[in-house]
Design a protein around this nucleic acid. Structure first.
Lengths: 144, 144
DNA sequence: GGCGAATGCATAGATGGTCGATACACGTGA
DNA sequence: TCACGTGTATCGACCATCTATGCATTCGCC
C-alpha cells in the first residue's frame, strides 16, 4: 500500500529532522545521545555487561566499550568484575550517574519540551504518549 | 512538572534508539538520511538555494554544499545559476531524484514498516499519524 | 558610475562518533 | 594440561559534521 509507505517515509524523515534539530538546539547540553542511552539502559536493567549494552543500545561492541569508558571517566558509571565470569565486566550506574540521568539538564529533552509548548496541548500529549510506543518499536528486532 | 520531563526524556531516548536501530537494519539502503532530507525538501519546496536548504534540513551551509554535490554526482539533483542573483545557486530535483525519493527502496522506511507490522494495528496507525505532527515539531524553531 | 560593505557559496582543516578486524584474557570441557 | 569458545579492549580507518576562511557577486551610498 503506497500510502502507508509514504507515511512511513515521512515519519522517518520527520524523526531525522527532529533529532537533528534538537541536537543543534542543545548547546553542549552535557551528555551525548549514546551516553544517555547507555545510562538509561543501565538504570532500567541494572548492572549489565558490555556486550548486552551494545546489543540494546544498539551499537557495536567497540562503541559500547568507548562509551562506557567515557562515562566511567565522568564518574557516572563504574566497572566491576563479573563475579561469575572473570572475562566479563559489569557496568553499573553510580549515584552521580542516576542524578545526571534524572536531571532535566539534558538539552534535547528540554528543547523538545520547549517545542511541545508550541503545539496544541492535545497534540503534545499524543506525542508524549507515543514515547512508550516508539520505545517498543526501537526494541523490536528482526522481522517482528 | 517532573512527569512531563521524564516523558520527554523517554521520547527523546526512544527516538534516538529507533533511528539508530533502523540505520543498522538497512544495509546501505541507498541514500544517507541527510541526502534524503535534502531531496524531500527540494521536492516539496521546489528549486532552492544552498543556504535555504541548510536552514531547513537543518545543517551547516558547508554540509548542504557537500550533500548537494554528492546528490548532483548521483544525478538526483542539478544546480542552476539563480537568474536573479549571480552569487546564488539554485538546486532542483531531477526526474531520477524524484523517482529515487518516491521509490520505497529507502531501507529505513522499509525497516520501520516491517516493525510496525509487529505492533497492534491501531498503535501502528497512531504512529504513522504522528508523522505530520513530528514534522511540525521539527520545523519549529526558537522558543516556539 | 565607482567603491566599500554585505551576502552566497565553496574549500580547508579538524573533531567526534562509529565500525570492522584483531589481539588478549578468561572459562569450559576433554 | 591443552585446545577451543567467549567476552572485552585496542587499532586503524571511514564518514558526517562543524567552524573558520577565501572568493565571487550584489547592494548601498556617494
Amino acid at each position: 500500500m503506497a500510502a502507508r509507505q509514504e507515511a512511513a517515509l515521512e515519519l522517518v524523515l520527520s524523526l531525522h529532522r527532529l533529532l537533528r534539530s534538537l541536537r543543534r538546539a542543545s548547546p553542549t547540553g552535557g551528555l551525548q545521545p549514546t551516553q544517555l542511552i547507555v545510562l538509561s539502559q543501565l538504570t532500567e536493567a541494572g548492572p549489565s555487561r558490555i556486550g548486552v549494552i551494545a546489543e540494546r543500545v544498539p551499537c557495536s561492541q567497540p562503541t559500547a566499550t568507548a562509551v562506557v569508558a567515557e562515562l566511567e571517566s565522568l564518574g557516572l558509571v563504574r566497572r566491576e568484575p563479573d563475579p561469575t565470569d572473570g572475562r566479563a565486566t559489569r557496568v553499573a550506574v553510580t549515584e552521580e550517574g542516576a542524578g545526571a540521568l534524572r536531571g532535566v539538564a539534558y538539552g534535547e529533552a528540554e528543547a523538545l519540551l520547549e517545542r511541545l509548548g508550541s503545539l496544541p496541548p492535545q497534540d503534545a500529549a499524543r506525542l508524549l504518549e507515543a514515547g512508550p510506543l516508539l520505545r517498543l518499536l526501537a526494541e523490536t528486532r528482526g522481522t517482528g
